[in-house]
């Protein structure tokens, strides 16, 4: 099961890409309520969006981005049927990617 939801919709030449990634986005500042120990930082750091394999945007996120990050952007030059790929990597090196077809 993918942990990424992504949607791309073209309207009059502008394609809006919306994505939701499942991730805790721990800041490293929070303490565990029971043990009092600091919860280590764990956040998505880089999100890359490509159109037919060519990079169109990179979002660098800090731990201040909300849990289960939402990232959206809009681009020109995409047509219905094109492929949008999103991939993320977090500060521990975990990564994931997903694809969507422009509608």
């Amino acid at each position: 099961m993918s942990t990424i939801k992504i949607r791309a919709r073209e309207k009059s030449g502008v394609t809006t890409i919306q994505s939701l990634m499942k991730h805790p986005m721990e800041t490293g500042l929070r303490k565990d309520a029971k043990t009092g120990e600091t919860i280590p930082a764990h956040f998505i750091s880089d999100v890359t969006i490509s159109l037919n394999g060519e990079k169109v945007m990179t979002a660098y996120l800090g731990p201040a981005v909300s849990k289960n990050p939402y990232v959206s952007t809009s681009i020109k030059g995409a047509k219905k049927g094109d492929t949008i790929t999103l991939s993320w990597v977090d500060n521990t090196g975990e990564n994931a990617s997903a694809e969507a077809v422009v509608k």
Binding site: T27, L61, G62, A64, V65, Y70, S72
Partner: peptide
């Protein structure tokens, strides 16, 4: 915020003038 920079988006000429995300404050 303790670390003010929340997110930074690198764009390409394809950009159509919109970025959006959700942040903690």
């Amino acid at each position: 915020n303790p670390a003010p920079l929340a997110a930074s988006f690198d764009l390409t000429p394809n950009s159509a003038g919109l970025v959006s995300t959700r942040i903690k404050m």
